[in-house]
Amino acid sequence: MPAKYVQLAASVRSAIAAGDYRETNRLPTEQQLMELYQVSRQTVRSALDILTKEGLITRRQGSGTVILERKAPEKPGNNTVAIVISFANSYIFPALLMECQQTLLENGFSALVYGTDNQFEKERKILTQLLEHPVQGLVIEGTKSALPNPNLDLYEKLLATGMPIVFIHNCYPELNLPVLRDDDETGGYLAARHLLEKGHTRIGGIFKLDDRQGALRYSGMMRALRERNLLSREESVFWYDTNQRLTLLEQGDTAWLEFFAEKLRETCTAAVCYNDEIASRLLEILLTQGVKVPRDFAIISFDNSHYSSLGTIGLTSLAPDPGMLGALGAQAILSRIRGEPVSGQKLPWKLVQRKST
């Protein structure tokens, strides 16, 4: 795993590319970055040193850390690849971006990183910009990939220009393009099977409604239950969307998750959660309610992130390999640029057991 300051530099770099600080054109203070990312001052300073050497920021007396302007690519002949992801600040992307950018750099290409915040409107603006300022290739994560996409016309226009496109994490089936992703259905199957092996027969879940990964993880969970002639009752499976996620993270609105927790306790003894971000907050709610985890209720989730190790009860979680996914994404787009065929790939999960199960 990359050093903490390298991961922080990647996170801040992605946030800058996504336009998170466009209004002020300045980064948060060192203290604010320490609190936001839960790291030491030395880690923050080392990360800022990296970004300064890259020419991305400069530190000015009395003005703080100023973001330096970078022009968009102007000529289609440049050696630039665009990388478009959903949430630039999400914990799953630093390693992915670092390996993707490093692989591109080793092959003579630079990267432009964009963030959609999983919003169709932002995706459309980015695709429009890429039509106006073409790049050599596009590595992209679909926006709300479980829903009909209103921007397929722009993808078709990009393809008509000859721009190679490779998807990561998910894709739009209408486009029939290669996608590199974690094997989400098998992940859901492994999570449910783990709970079954622990003796649970009443298993529910919380999944993300508007991303394809949520549907696949749910499908895998149900396959494992069917093999044991069990079915998860419909009232034991709950779905949330991007807007609910934002209210949870930005406004601290836990009402909907507290409702999920109450209903899960009524019908289940264990739950499969879409990711550590949701699972850690579900765990906190249950502990506040006096529930003994895992004795009264067990939780398993996905991503094996820093959330899984917070507190006294660690989360059993399925670990992906985001660095490998980033490197494969870069290799795939380089192959497409050379005119070589590329097939989709599914990466396996690794179960990391902790106290929550």
Rank of each mutant, 00 (worst) to 15 (best):
97 L>P: 03
188 G>A: 03
81 V>W: 03
94 P>N: 03
65 T>A: 08
214 G>F: 04
326 G>F: 11
342 V>I: 02
186 T>M: 14
23 E>N: 05
110 S>P: 12
299 I>S: 00
46 S>K: 15
30 E>Y: 13
111 A>W: 05
333 I>A: 01
189 Y>C: 07
124 R>W: 12
91 Y>N: 09
92 I>E: 02
170 N>E: 15
123 E>Q: 14
159 L>P: 09
354 R>K: 06
348 P>F: 06
87 F>I: 04
291 V>Y: 01
171 C>D: 14
81 V>H: 02
213 Q>Y: 13
298 A>Q: 03
265 R>D: 11
261 A>M: 08
196 L>V: 00
133 H>L: 07
164 P>I: 00
176 N>V: 12
304 N>D: 15
150 P>R: 08
165 I>W: 00
219 S>Y: 12
257 L>M: 09
220 G>K: 06
19 G>K: 00
260 F>M: 11
171 C>H: 15
348 P>M: 09
127 L>M: 08
309 S>T: 11
183 D>E: 11
130 L>N: 00
303 D>P: 03
63 S>C: 13
2 P>Q: 14
265 R>W: 09
120 F>S: 02
193 R>N: 10
68 L>W: 09
167 F>T: 07
304 N>S: 06
356 S>M: 01
172 Y>C: 10
244 Q>V: 00
220 G>I: 07
186 T>L: 14
57 I>T: 04
312 T>W: 06
68 L>N: 11
246 L>M: 07
298 A>L: 04
257 L>V: 03
222 M>C: 15
190 L>S: 07
199 G>L: 00
126 I>T: 03
200 H>C: 00
119 Q>I: 14
337 I>H: 01
165 I>P: 05
327 A>M: 15
270 A>P: 01
127 L>K: 10
280 S>E: 10
297 F>N: 05
346 K>D: 08
116 T>G: 03
158 L>E: 13
356 S>H: 01
307 Y>L: 04
49 D>P: 12
237 V>P: 05
235 E>Q: 11
272 V>M: 02
350 K>I: 11
351 L>M: 13
4 K>D: 14
141 E>G: 06
260 F>A: 04
293 V>F: 07
206 I>L: 06
42 Q>N: 15
332 A>T: 09
257 L>H: 02
174 E>V: 12
124 R>M: 14
161 T>Y: 14
108 G>S: 12
296 D>I: 01
148 P>G: 13
331 Q>R: 14
154 L>C: 11
12 V>R: 06
276 D>Y: 02
88 A>N: 10
269 T>D: 10
114 Y>K: 04
222 M>L: 14
292 K>E: 11
116 T>W: 05
84 V>T: 08
323 G>E: 14
303 D>R: 04
346 K>Y: 06
163 M>L: 12
227 E>H: 08
47 A>R: 02
240 Y>V: 08
340 E>T: 08
294 P>C: 02
195 L>T: 01
217 R>E: 09
165 I>A: 05
197 E>D: 13
174 E>I: 13
223 R>N: 13
41 R>G: 13
253 D>L: 06
333 I>E: 00
91 Y>C: 03
317 S>E: 04
